[in-house]
């Protein structure tokens, strides 16, 4: 419209119509569905001042629950990074019977309702379940311990690493790899020097997604966790328990703490990822 050399402009001009409508609707919808509700989460805990928030967050039970949720999510993310890389590797680099099926199965944890996964995993890993009995013979209890939580979180995080690493692995420059092979680099050397640096940013991103999903996971965990305070009780369950005890501020405080912690961790992962990308791109 006007010449825009100096004036600040909210939007660059173009021929396409519909911006006010689309933008207005998007912002309105986001406000109603995401912003206002989350604002409640951010504001509500402080209604009674600092003290109640502090009391909830310094409670050993809350700390244990947060530690379990974040700790188990981190371990699950690492396990998923390793195994996800292997699965992605198999899917990208090799042809074998049933490959398409395997590829399709990767998304199952994403599509399967979490409660369904929860009761199935519990049936498998309970002391009287098929795998649970086997582990029990070895003196290892899986279900109703933090190990059960870990299994559930590995399940829900599986697709994220595979699906972020897969396309990158497809794009790794094969010529560089072949050159390395011609130069006599062994399989391990090639993996370490050529493939890993290229895949690392995507791997980290996948880890971040798996982690974020696992931290907040509820449905698949509560059936298998045993929900023992201080030991196998996850933070989302504690939110529900606070709510059941009619402690809105406490529930919101734990929710807010989870949100802030996740945000910080994802931010750090993002920064590392940015560095990795810069380093691998000369």
């Amino acid at each position: 419209m006007t010449s825009a050399t100096a004036s600040w402009r909210f939007r660059e001009p173009g021929v396409l119509p519909g911006f006010p409508l689309a933008f207005g609707f998007t912002v309105f919808y986001l406000s109603v569905i995401v912003l206002i509700p989350l604002a409640a989460l951010v504001v509500r805990p402080w209604e009674g001042g600092w003290e109640p928030v502090w009391r909830v967050l310094s409670d050993p039970r809350t700390l244990a629950a947060l530690r379990l949720s974040f700790g188990a999510a981190a371990v699950a993310a690492v396990v998923n990074a390793v195994m996800g890389l292997i699965v992605a590797w198999a899917l990208v680099r090799y042809d074998f019977p049933g490959k398409r099926l395997l590829d399709a199965m990767v998304d199952l944890p994403f599509a399967l309702p979490t409660a369904v996964a929860g009761i199935a995993l519990t049936a498998i890993y309970a002391p009287n379940g098929p795998l649970g009995a086997w582990f029990a013979d070895m003196g290892l209890q899986i279900a109703y311990t933090p190990r059960g939580v870990l299994i559930a979180l590995i399940f829900v995080g599986l697709p994220f690493v595979v699906r972020t690493v897969q396309p990158v692995l497809e794009d790794v420059d094969r010529e560089v790899e072949e050159a390395a092979e011609t130069l006599g680099a062994g399989a391990f050397q090639r993996a370490r020097l050529v493939i890993l640096p290229a895949v690392a940013p995507a791997l980290l991103a996948g880890c971040g997604l798996a982690f974020a999903r696992a931290v907040g996971e509820y449905g698949s965990v509560i059936f298998i966790a045993g929900n023992m305070p201080l030991r196998s009780e996850i933070a989302p369950l504690l939110i529900i328990i606070q709510l059941e005890q009619f402690n809105y501020a406490g529930a919101a405080a734990i929710g807010l703490a989870m949100l802030v912690l996740s945000f910080i961790i994802l931010l750090i992962l993002n920064i590392i990822q940015g560095r990795l990308v810069r380093r691998s791109a000369p």
Binding site: R44, T114, I239, I240, L243, A251, A252, M258
Partner: peptide, 19 residues
């Protein structure tokens, strides 16, 4: 902001409506 609901626990996504 559009991505935000992905990194929020489902329990929190329910909780906010109760709040």
């Amino acid at each position: 902001l559009i991505d935000l609901p992905f990194s929020v626990s489902p329990v929190i996504s329910g909780l906010v409506w109760v709040l």
